[in-house]
């Protein structure tokens, strides 16, 4: 039983990260039909912004803020203006392929400019363990979980309660109608990219102490978030959360009780089952817009 709780708890912590990254994925898809294959690299990069700032002798809180700002500039504004905008009209695939090239570009650039080594990353969370139902759980995992959930709740509140948030939702649901209703669609799309950049930066700061800052750290994460987004329905924020948490837990249970050699495939079979029997995803609604 203790083992089981252990697996669930650590799965939840990992899943919360998947969820954070998957939400951004979902948001970009909703508002701009962007499938971002570089999303994993987007989580890897902010850690290096922070490390570079730390190397200049700045204290950690400042470095984190600088990292967040740079992420929003590079992974938000520049990404949208330079890459997404010119390609948006030409359908989903060319843009998706372009983000694939972007992921190679980001990985190789970090490797060449910074290092191929994994660099330790300072944690702003407390170390140590808590006892929970007889299982030892690290405060770091709990904090990651709490942070991720808070970020998600804040985002939900923002989208539901504020006027900007509602305009963003309108944009996501139907940009044409939103435009007719006087919503500044362009600006709303930009906000989505900024929110995505902030989410990946947060994910980066939370996990880099554990995953370490390394050029290849985004590979598994990007794929996991992608899967989480699909399992959750791809067009629903709460779907992405459920998908992420579920994937984290299933990952652990599959490795512990089914097969360690096939741990990469079991969650995917879950995914196939979901898609075959519920093509609109676990929490998703049927997509009304044609792609």
């Amino acid at each position: 039983m203790m083992n089981f709780i252990n697996l669930i708890l650590s799965g939840l912590a990992t899943g919360a990260i998947y969820a954070l990254v998957a939400i951004g994925f979902t948001l970009l898809w909703q508002t701009s039909q962007t499938i971002n294959f570089a999303q994993g690299e987007f989580v890897m990069v902010p850690a290096f912004f922070v490390l570079a700032t730390l190397n200049l002798g700045m204290p950690l809180p400042i470095a984190l803020l600088v990292g967040l700002a740079l992420s929003m500039l590079v992974l938000g504004v520049l990404f949208k203006n330079l890459l997404v905008d010119p390609m948006l009209r030409h359908g989903v695939l060319p843009l998706a392929i372009c983000t694939m090239a972007l992921s190679i570009f980001l990985k190789e650039t970090v490797k060449e400019v910074y290092s191929a080594e994994a660099s330790p990353f300072p944690s702003f969370l407390p170390e140590g363990n808590l006892i929970f139902f007889g299982a030892n759980i690290s405060i770091q995992s709990v904090s990651i979980f709490v942070f991720a959930i808070c970020a998600v709740l804040a985002l939900q509140a923002f989208l539901a309660r504020t006027s900007t948030g509602r305009q963003m939702q309108a944009t996501a649901q139907n940009p044409y109608v939103a435009k007719l209703l006087g919503v500044p669609v362009e600006r709303m799309i930009m906000y989505t990219f900024l929110i995505n950049a902030a989410l990946v930066a947060l994910a980066s700061f939370l996990i880099s102490p554990v995953y370490l800052a390394k050029f290849s750290a985004g590979e598994t994460l990007g794929l996991a978030a992608f899967i989480a987004a699909i399992v959750g329905g791809f067009n629903q924020i709460r779907g992405a959360i459920v998908g992420g948490l579920l994937l984290g837990i299933v990952d652990n249970l599959a490795a512990a009780y089914i097969s360690t050699q096939y741990r990469g495939a079991v969650p995917l079979f879950l995914l196939i089952a979901v898609i075959l029997f519920r093509p609109q995803g676990l929490m998703g609604r049927a997509e009304e817009r044609t792609v």
């Binding site: 083992n3 697996l7 590979e219 490795a255 741990r263 990469g264």
Partner: peptide, 20 residues
């Protein structure tokens, strides 16, 4: 006999299995 993946971040399941 526990196989893990390169770049794996979460070893909870592996340790559970090792202990068993």
């Amino acid at each position: 006999d526990i196989s893990t993946e390169a770049g794996q971040a979460d070893f909870a399941a592996d340790v559970v299995k090792a202990k068993s």
